[in-house]
């Protein structure tokens, strides 16, 4: 009895630890959001979000990332049922959607920089690139992690340790989609409300 309890408790410890990491990451993003909210009017004669953003592009990014969060959940359902192939398939779908999101974001960044509107242009653009870039960096890390887990899945299958790691990866991915809700609202939608 006690052995079983201990095993389960130990199994949950890393997941709780990872949850605490995610919550502290929220604080990082909160400080970047606060910075953006303070600086977004300081365009220094450069373009504002109203002139710069494409709301259709931002909506596409949002829906792609949201769908990837959903397919990541489906992958976890398959993992808990012990269906290795199905788990891998859903994670590959999630990975492709994640890469699509990153390409859309980098294309947007590239477009801005080519027009001369890089992070050097104004306080608004510095805050914009820092906030959205930090999120993009997290996505990149998540994608690498997903590749490693796919490789591990292919080699070892759905052991207990693998499921625990996949659980943490899925928490990370859902967390990034949650942060994006606020980027979409506070950066893109807010930017398009008023010039």
């Amino acid at each position: 009895m006690s052995t079983s309890t201990t095993v389960q408790a130990d199994d949950q410890k890393p997941v709780l630890g990872f949850w605490i990491y995610l919550m502290t990451d929220c604080v990082l993003f909160a400080s970047l959001f606060a910075t953006y909210a303070v600086l977004f009017r300081n365009t220094s004669g450069g373009p504002s979000g109203y002139q710069l953003f494409s709301l259709k592009n931002a909506l596409t990014e949002t829906l792609v990332l949201l769908t990837s969060s959903f397919t990541c959940g489906l992958a976890m359902l398959a993992a808990h049922k012990g269906k290795k192939r199905q788990t891998m398939a859903w994670f590959i779908v999630t990975f492709v959607l994640g890469v699509t999101f990153l390409i859309l974001e980098l294309t947007e960044f590239h477009h801005f920089i080519q027009m001369g509107d890089s992070w050097r242009r104004s306080g608004f653009l510095s805050a914009f690139f820092t906030l959205v870039g930090t999120h993009g960096l997290h996505i990149t890390v998540g994608l690498f992690w997903m590749l490693v887990m796919l490789w591990r899945l292919a080699r070892t299958g759905l052991g207990k340790a693998t499921i625990r790691r996949l659980t943490m990866l899925s928490m990370f991915w859902h967390f990034l989609d949650i942060v994006w809700i606020f980027i979409f609202t506070i950066v893109y939608l807010r930017g398009m409300i008023a010039p």
Partner: peptide
Amino acid sequence: STRGTLATYVIGYIFSIYLTITAYLLVE
């Protein structure tokens, strides 16, 4: 503590899409 069901994911997904599109249309 670790698992959802198909229902929770589907409901969450549909709700999220609905809220996103609503916000988008209001601003657009």
